[in-house]
Amino acid sequence: MSGTYETPGGTHETPGDPHGGRDRPGHRAALALGDDALVLAQRLGEWAGHAPELEEDVALANIALDLLGQARTLLSLVGDEDKLAYLREEREFRNVQLVEQPNGDFAQTIIRQLYFSVYQELLYGQLAGCRPEDATPVAALAAKAVKETAYHRDHAEQWTLRLGDGTEESHRRAQHAVDALWRYTGELFQPVEGLDVDWDNLRATWTTSVRSVLEQATLRVPEGPQSAVWAAGGGRQGVHTEPFGRLLAEMQHLHRSHPEASW
C-alpha cells in the first residue's frame, strides 16, 4: 500500500509507505492532532532530569505522558502507531510548528505550553461538544482528553504568572518567549479537514484567553504577525522548521536501525 502527502506542488505518493488511507478526512484530523501531541510529548520528555525543581520534573513528565497517551490513541485510528511515529519522513508529519520548537529555557517551554494547551483545550472542548450522533473517534478522544488538557493549561498559566510577575530576570525571559513564539500561533487556527470546529470562534476565544493571562502576568501582548510569510505553508502541510529534523532523527534512529525487530 502507499500513502500520499501534499505539498504546494500537489499530492505525492510515498513509495513503500506502510499505511494507506491517510487521505480520508477523519484520518487527516487524527494525524494532525496525533502528531501535535506526539511531538510535544517528545520535546517535554527532553526535560526529564533537567527541570528547575523536582516538582517540575514530575509535572512536565506528567503532561508529556498525557500527550503521549493522546498521540497513541489518535495515531492508532490511522494505522500502526509505531510505523506512523517511527517510519514517516519529516514532510509527512502534520503537527503545527509550535510544538516542535526547541525547549529553550523554562520560560520558552512554559509559553509554548500556554499557547498550545489553551488551543488544545478549546479545540477538544468544541469537538467534545458535538451531538452524540455526530461523534467521531477523534471527538471521543477529545471528550476524554479535555480534562487533562485543562490541567496542562492551568499549570502553564500559573507558571506564566510566576515568571511574568516574578523577578526582573524571569519577566525578561518570559517576554522574550512570548514574542519569539508568537509567530507560530497563527497556524493553530488553520482549519483541519475532518474536524467540525468553528475556527473563527476558536481564534477569538484563544486570543481573549491568552491575552488575559499575559496581561495578568504583566507581559506585553505581541503586536507582530502570527505567521511567517512563506507560500510553502506550515506544519499542517508537512512543512516544518529546521530543528524538527533533528528531533525525528533522535526519536526514530533506534527503531529504524532494526527494521525486523519488535520491542
Binding site: 506526539l38 517528545q42 520528555g45 527532553e46 526529564a48 503521549l68 498521540a71 497513541r72 495515531l75 502507531e81 509505531d82 511515529a85 517511527y86 533522535e250 526519536m251 534512529h253 533506534l254 527503531h255 532494526h258 525487530a261 519488535s262 520491542w263
Partner: peptide, 8 residues
C-alpha cells in the same frame, strides 16, 4: 526517553 524504540 527520546530514543525509546516504540511508543509503548
Amino acid at each position: 526517553i527520546t530514543r525509546a524504540p516504540s511508543l509503548r
